[in-house]
């Protein structure tokens, strides 16, 4: 695990990098001057008090901020070397490559199967086959693989065609993760993925994130410092200063918890310990 972490931190070319990023809603600045490189394969946890712009920051990384009225983003975000804030970016493709998981599980009001097959077909991720039967078989294989990946296969294999809304909260959230994974993204953005779940389901999702670690780069917002400590390679601390969100410190998990440089970080993590 330590070798992993050092590999991530010493990586020279970050996979995803925000440069002097600022986001405002109308006149209100949510956060400003955030520069944060995210290395390939690491789990980056974003922590901080409510209202410090964590979720807004995350929503820039896959341009979900486009969907918010009066929302304006300045700065640059580089993904594999290109600036994704450029108007020429294909957001459909971008969001396929950078998946997102929300606070509240949000499966579509369709069957488990349709929830997964819909994005798969939409992006043409299954090779067109000689027959419909073979095509369906290929979709089935992809669905089974991804459900096994999130540990949901055994639980839902007999109810693939019943409504996804009938699943429990934890199952729904894992289905949502599966739905994002089926598009074979490079990055997963997770916006407090466990906060709407009970502790047991939360632990399952946490374990899943660790299992996905080497394969997917993950950026996760969490209010739970203990959780950040358990899963993150590095931690970014956001804070509100002069009514604006700011990134006050980034470092390895060990450094943030054991030797924070910013006094606010120190107060925050010690408060979190207590």
């Amino acid at each position: 695990m330590t070798t992993m972490m050092s590999a991530a931190t010493t990586c020279t070319q970050p996979l995803l990098e925000a440069k002097h990023l600022q986001l405002s809603y109308g006149q209100q600045v949510a956060f400003h001057d955030v520069s944060l490189p995210i290395a390939s394969g690491e789990i980056m946890a974003i922590v901080g008090p409510s209202g410090c712009g964590k979720s807004s920051f995350l929503s820039c990384l896959n341009r979900m901020s486009d969907l918010v009225p009066h929302c304006h983003v300045q700065g640059e975000i580089h993904f594999n070397g290109t600036n994704i804030l450029s108007p020429r970016t294909d957001t459909l493709l971008l969001r396929r490559r950078i998946g997102m998981i929300f606070q509240k599980p949000n499966p579509f009001p369709l069957s488990v199967w349709e929830n997964l097959a819909l994005p798969l077909r939409e992006h043409g991720l299954v090779k067109s086959q000689t027959s419909r039967r073979a095509f369906r078989q290929a979709i089935h294989q992809a669905i089974e693989a991804v459900l096994r990946d999130v540990g949901l296969w055994e639980e839902v294999k007999n109810r693939l065609h019943s409504s996804a809304l009938a699943l429990s909260g934890g199952q729904q959230q894992r289905l949502c993760i599966a739905r994002a994974l089926i598009l074979q993204p490079e990055v997963l953005l997770l916006d407090e993925p466990c906060s709407a779940l009970d502790p047991l389901a939360s632990a399952v999702v946490e374990e899943l994130m660790l299992r996905l670690r080497p394969r997917y780069t993950q950026v996760v917002i969490t209010h739970n410092l203990a959780q950040a400590k358990r899963i993150a390679d590095r931690i970014a601390v956001f804070w509100v200063q002069q009514h604006k969100g700011q990134l006050i410190e980034v470092g390895s998990t060990q450094q943030i918890f054991n030797a924070p440089t910013h006094e606010l970080t120190a107060a925050y993590v010690s408060g979190g310990k207590g």
Partner: peptide, 27 residues
Amino acid sequence: VPPSYRQGAAALGLSQTTTLFKIILPA
């Protein structure tokens, strides 16, 4: 129709056409 459906669809890079006809309108 809950906005979370639209968010979920957008985050998967689904086109607006698919989002409307497969998810929003049926709901």
